Computed example of a mutant assay.
Amino acid sequence: MHGLVCIECGTRRNPCRCRVVGPTLGFLAFAVAAVIEWPVGALVYVFKHRKGRRIMGQPATVVYPKVANSIPI
């Protein structure tokens, strides 16, 4: 069984210029948030389109970047 590993290279935040831990944990946090927020966003979208879209986009625009960027390796 292969594990899920996200690699981001070309960054200047660490000496090896590649990050593994931050992007991988960011993706896992994204997945957990998406499971919760996408159904809620879809329900809200029925009544308020903009707010529903913002809720559904939050895992990609808020959760993933915050988690991935908080861990420099």
Rank of each mutant, 00 (worst) to 15 (best):
G3W: 05
L4K: 14
L4R: 11
V5K: 13
V5G: 05
C6F: 04
I7F: 12
E8S: 14
E8A: 13
C9R: 11
C9T: 09
C9D: 14
G10S: 00
T11D: 09
T11P: 02
R12T: 10
R12S: 13
R12G: 11
N14H: 05
P15D: 03
R17D: 09
R17Q: 14
R19I: 11
R19Y: 03
V20N: 00
V21W: 03
V21S: 05
V21I: 12
G22S: 05
P23W: 03
P23I: 07
T24Q: 06
L25W: 09
L25N: 08
L25G: 02
L28Y: 06
L28Q: 08
A29V: 06
A33H: 01
A33R: 03
A34K: 11
A34M: 01
A34P: 00
V35I: 01
I36R: 06
I36G: 04
I36A: 07
E37F: 12
W38E: 08
W38P: 00
W38H: 02
P39I: 01
P39T: 04
V40I: 15
V40N: 00
G41C: 13
A42E: 06
V44R: 06
V44Y: 12
Y45G: 03
Y45T: 09
V46N: 12
V46S: 09
V46Q: 09
V46Y: 14
V46K: 10
F47L: 15
F47E: 09
K48A: 08
K48W: 12
K48N: 07
K51Q: 14
G52E: 08
G52D: 11
G52H: 11
I55A: 05
M56R: 14
M56Y: 03
M56F: 04
G57S: 03
Q58R: 12
P59Y: 00
P59E: 02
P59Q: 09
P59S: 03
T61L: 08
V62M: 10
V62C: 10
V62W: 10
V63S: 11
V63F: 14
Y64C: 08
Y64D: 01
P65E: 04
P65M: 04
A68I: 03
N69A: 07
N69M: 11
I71C: 00
I71L: 13
P72G: 00
I73S: 06
I73V: 05
